[in-house]
Each structure stands twice: as C-alpha cells, then as structure tokens.
Amino acid sequence: MRLLVLISCFLFSFAFADIKTSLYHLYQDKQYEEACKEGLKVFQQYRKDEEFVSLYAFSCLHADYIDRLAIPISLLKKTEEARSNAAYFSVILMQKKLLYHALLDGYELNELKLPTTDHVLSIVFGLYSKAPHDRKQNHYMFFDKQNDKVSYKLYIKNGNHSKKMVIEEYYDTIMTHRHTYW
C-alpha cells in the first residue's frame, strides 16, 4: 500500500512537471495562445502552484486573453513575486475594462490617476485619458511619446455578439500588431 502511494506520488509529480515543462516550452517558443489554452485545460488541478499560475497568466496576457487573468489575480498571493505579478495583471485588466467602458459609454477617464505598465493596453489607456474628447470619434490615433514612429489606433469593431475593442500598433505606417479585446 505504501509503495503504491509512493509510486502514485512519483507519477503525479512527474506528470505535473511534464505539463509545466510543456507550458514553459510553449511560452519560450512564443506560442502564447497555445500555452494559455493548454494551461486552462489543467488549471483546476494545478491552481495551487503559483509558478504554474504565473506561467499560465503570462501566456494568456501575451495571447490577449485578458479576462482570463481574473482568476490568477485572486490566486497569486503567497510570495512577493506572485503578489507583484497579481498587481501587474490587475492594473492591465482594470485598464482594459475602463477603456472599453469609456469607448462604448463615454466614461470620463481624464480624472483618473492609475498606475501604469509596459503593456500596450496601459500605454493606450494613458494616451486616451490625456486626449481631449470634445466629440465622439470613430477611431483614435495616438503617437508614442518616446518614439514618434510608433503609433496606436484605437477603435470599436462590431462583432457578431458583442462590440470589440481593437488596438493596432503601427511602426512607420506599417501595422505590426493587432490586439482585440472584448
């Protein structure tokens, strides 16, 4: 019986290491969407492992699945690093929600003074909140303060079921990334 428990523990740890390893490799290979989806499949089993949760959360962040950060935010709390990352994720999530609300409902962001991050959502949030909103626009073009060749286009796209917020990153008029949030 004892041997059986030991073997099962060994197999469990081996399987777990394998999942984390595959997730790590997917992340390193920049297959963020795949890593996020794989992580979601086994999330409930490994939700107590903060390394796994962090890896999953960063994968989802890079794959633009921002809403999936909500659970990692609540789970990352044991270590200083985990808490730091939870704060980082929560700022991005909040800024995404506020920006979406502002674009659809005209919510004023000018008065808000929030922390910022290096994520594109934070950059666009900061630029949007400082821009004048005298009249409603179909799209907004923002230019990066540090690099004038970099610009961002922000607009709302009508989807099948819901309206989607789109951020397009441009470098010298060439679109480099398109992020879609809803």
Partner: peptide
C-alpha cells in the same frame, strides 16, 4: 507626481 509603473516579475521562470 510620478506615475507608478508596475513591471512583471519573471523570476519564477
């Protein structure tokens, strides 16, 4: 006031 800039921590990697 300086805006607080949060950065991701990847030490767990």
């Amino acid at each position: 006031r300086h805006t607080l800039v949060l950065k991701p921590s990847l030490h767990f990697m």
